[in-house]
Design a binder for these strands. Structure first.
Lengths: 119, 119
DNA sequence: ACATTAGTTAAGTAACTGCTTGACTATCGA
DNA sequence: TCGATAGTCAAGCAGTTACTTAACTAATGT
């Protein structure tokens, strides 16, 4: 139950479910109790609990109980991990396209200069 | 097989598997044939094919066959979709923290002014 | 005190995943 | 032409997921 260090596997897996994404969307605006999360979600409270547990294990959500209500809030580090992975992939991909651009430009006009294309 | 419009469900699901993430990482650098993708991956070619098929359905990868080799390349729109969803959540979350900061500052010194805290 | 509210636990189940193997079909290279 | 290469298709299978219902516990409001 104390598995809060986020992994890419866990975070992407958690986000792959539309119910859990809806919960994350809701919690991005403000914290909420489990039954608030459950209210719009045509499924049993037990099912919602299971989603909350998975979100918590994935590191996307933290929660604490006081009295009989468990309040959930978003824990942004896990989202940041996923976002960074995607951004890194895109950076690589863009770099490759840049190189490709240079190569094509060089083919067009085989000068040795870098980066600037001709007007 | 022509299901290339990316959805959040499909993209996050595809990215939830470490094998498929490895493939996306590989393809972010340059296009590759199916068997190139398979080479480092201790599993049957058929299994790799199934991963490629899922990546393609998710919209993360495109591929085309010439001769007997199918070349896969990354299709960045799907990654962008996922990245944007995450960024939007974070934006909401940050906005909420800003408001919270204002409220706390106001509580500290209940003036009606916006934004600046006292030194 | 007692009913209601909020959550928890456990067990069961239908559908889905991530593989496997085996049989098959096209190229390509010598 | 013939064998190796690259990929495809289909069936099957163990493990996982997303629920369900039912029984239970613990705070709260009246």
């Amino acid at each position: 139950m104390l598995n809060h260090q986020p992994t890419l596997d866990g975070v992407f897996r958690a986000l792959a479910d539309p119910t859990r994404r809806a919960m994350v969307e809701r919690l991005s605006e403000r914290p909420a109790a489990v039954s608030e999360l459950a209210a719009p979600l045509e499924m049993s409270l037990a099912a919602v609990m299971q989603h909350v547990a998975l979100l918590e294990e994935s590191g996307l959500v933290r929660s604490e109980k006081q009295g009989r209500v468990r309040t959930c809030r978003i824990a942004p580090d896990a989202l940041a991990l996923a976002e960074r992975w995607i951004a890194d992939r895109r950076a690589l991909w863009v770099r490759r396209l840049d190189r490709l651009g240079e190569i094509l430009a060089d083919t067009d006009a085989p000068a040795r200069g870098r980066k600037k294309k001709r007007p």
